[in-house]
Design a protein around this nucleic acid. Structure first.
Lengths: 354, 354
DNA sequence: GGCAGCATAGTTAACGTTTTCTACAGGAAG
DNA sequence: CTTCCTGTAGAAAACGTTAACTATGCTGCC
């Protein structure tokens, strides 16, 4: 007892001395992987409590081979989308007895690479990259190289919500059906009778998220024998402000749409604000839909029809697949489904002609 | 090169062999803390690149003494409040060259204690506890003991957004003025002329956050010579559903309040929903305020008057103080200010009698 | 020319675990 | 009464790195 109060960190040796056994025996009592007599076990556990001993995870990892650590690298902790995926990662990691390292890169691709390197130093068993990234060939090649680097040291690169980097790169990929969700929501609006549907925020064709959603939007039109009026497809960024501004512009231009799809829920919230300001009622005068199904969307007025992404399962699956890649060897590329969540912001157009 | 492709994780020894030097020299080149000739350095760095070597952080920590790791333990990753504080923790940790471990306990106090233990195994330099916790003497005593345990191993317990656990417990505390914010918002409503103000969600008197807010609420009344009608102080959890249900109940009971304060913004969003459903206008018929100033509150209709908490600075300060506790020795208890953010959900009562 | 002092580099012993491998009982089987 | 397990325990090596010494040339100075 005196020792515990006096000294620094007690070690296995200290416990062994206090219990009158060898360090080996202490280790075995703690691990429970070797027969130890009941009386010895009792004495050891007593000493552990008395000294307030905890094992040194670093030392254990050094000899044991594995750190039991999963890293996740994310743009920001605060975005609802990222947070939910991160939540899934953390939960699954915890469920698998792993500890979670987290880093943010705030959209800086170079920083992202640095962080991966850092996680390699930390000997993370898996490195989960969350959210979209650059699609330049240079970046992809660097990423593939990193995937190989990680594989060499027994770790695993996991792409979560981001398309694969190449056929030969050893990486686990967990995507969601971005194009399918866009198809579904556009299809739903068309089925309601809408014929002139605007898509706001489809700016960067190189961005994987944007282009997949645009593709689904187009395919839905084609499926109904319609063609997309490119005048109704406008760009912008992923924020609220952008949705607001672009909606104002469309209204001013008298585009004549009966429905608007925001490229994300956040954009859609800006759309709603602009429409409200213009005195238009949703969904009476015009229907609005979003994408992502972030918690905000249920709280908007009216509650937003949107596309649900299985955020949390995305994170969980990422960790599960990566840690059990022997069992799931054939399944290292997973595509999770999306579906439309119908709320109050959509209705048939005023004069239905469908 | 062949070695890098063939083998497992290259070690300092492998690099040393490839560069024709000793392991010590490699270590010195990497650390840059000892003179090494330019030519040697070049050869070593070359070998590092060729072998795609990264240092083993565990082994370094084992001998070097420090893991350069900060742990933060939080209720959930997804709550906006926690996420922002977590963001602050992560940023400051990164700025200080530390790596961040994250765990969630989902409100389970025992799990929280387990996690602290786990972080002690991980040899985290600081263990940051985010958000309110229980205030029972038993829990406080256990917490104090943990603080001492951590101190013995050179780590540090940090309470972030939670009051101190006791004068003798070695812990860093970064609070925000919870009581003051509650006073301010209640005072503001009273000044507008409100006399019957409901407080929704003040359920658990043992919860630190709840009780501080209730105290501020009471003090504001007292400052104006008013007494709180306990019939207007109702319990519930911290979610939207709770705000919704409790508001319904108050309306049904004909409580006659002219303003409602939600214990959090999320609760307040439920309040707004219930009022809207009842056909009451905010702030025309009734005023509503929240607490926390999460991003959602600006997007609600009407935008919510609330109390701003310096979320991110809370997290940053927590890490800063803990890591530099030699410099900030006298300053290990910090109280950050809060202030009311007036938006559109509050106005004088319909028949002002103030 | 001898010697202090500096710039480099290497040797060796830690750090705190786990994992062989070895050891010694006591009991069962022959 | 050996012999051979089986149950329990310890000794020593290993994990990958760093830090405290030690060693070797040099340079420069008396």
């Amino acid at each position: 007892m005196a020792r515990a109060i006096a000294g620094g960190r007690p070690t296995v040796k200290d416990v062994a001395a206090a219990a009158g056994v060898s360090a080996t025996t202490v280790s075995r009592v703690l691990a429970g992987n070797y027969p130890v007599s009941a009386s010895t076990r009792k004495r050891v556990l007593r000493a552990v409590r008395d000294l307030d001993f905890v094992i040194n995870a670093q030392a254990r990892a050094l000899v044991g081979g594995s750190t039991r650590t999963v890293a996740f690298i994310v743009r920001d902790l605060v975005g609802p989308l990222f947070a939910y995926i991160g939540q899934g990662v953390e939960q699954q990691a915890t469920a698998e007895g792993r500890v979670c390292l987290v880093c943010t890169h705030h959209g800086d691709a170079d920083r992202e690479l640095e962080l991966i390197e850092l996680m390699r130093e930390q000997q993370a068993e898996a490195v989960v990259l969350v959210g979209g990234g650059l699609r330049t060939t240079e970046h992809l090649e660097r990423m593939a190289q990193i995937a190989r680097s990680l594989e060499r040291v027994g770790s695993r690169l996991v792409l979560c919500g981001r398309p694969p980097i190449g056929p030969d790169a050893p990486a686990t990929v967990v995507e969601y059906d971005n194009e399918g969700g866009a198809f579904a929501v556009a299809n739903y609006l068309i089925s309601l009778g809408h014929r002139r549907i605007a898509l706001i925020g489809a700016a960067e064709p190189e961005h994987t998220t944007t282009s997949a959603r645009y593709d689904g939007f187009t395919r839905a039109h084609a499926a109904h024998g319609l063609t997309v009026d490119t005048g109704l497809v406008v760009g912008g960024t992923f924020d609220r402000e952008s949705g607001y501004r672009q909606t104002k512009a469309l209204l001013a231009g008298d585009a004549g749409m009966t429905a608007i799809i925001g490229i994300t829920d956040v954009v859609a919230s800006g759309v709603l604000a602009a429409l409200r300001e213009a005195g238009l009622r949703v969904p009476g005068d015009i229907s609005v839909a979003g994408y992502d199904d972030i918690p905000l969307s249920a709280d908007l007025t009216p509650a937003l029809t949107t596309v649900h992404i299985p955020h949390e399962e995305l994170g969980r699956a990422a960790v599960r697949l990566a840690l059990h890649r022997d069992e799931y060897a054939l399944d290292q590329h997973l595509m999770l489904g999306t579906h439309v969540v119908i709320r109050e912001s959509t209705a048939p157009p005023r004069e239905s002609n469908g």
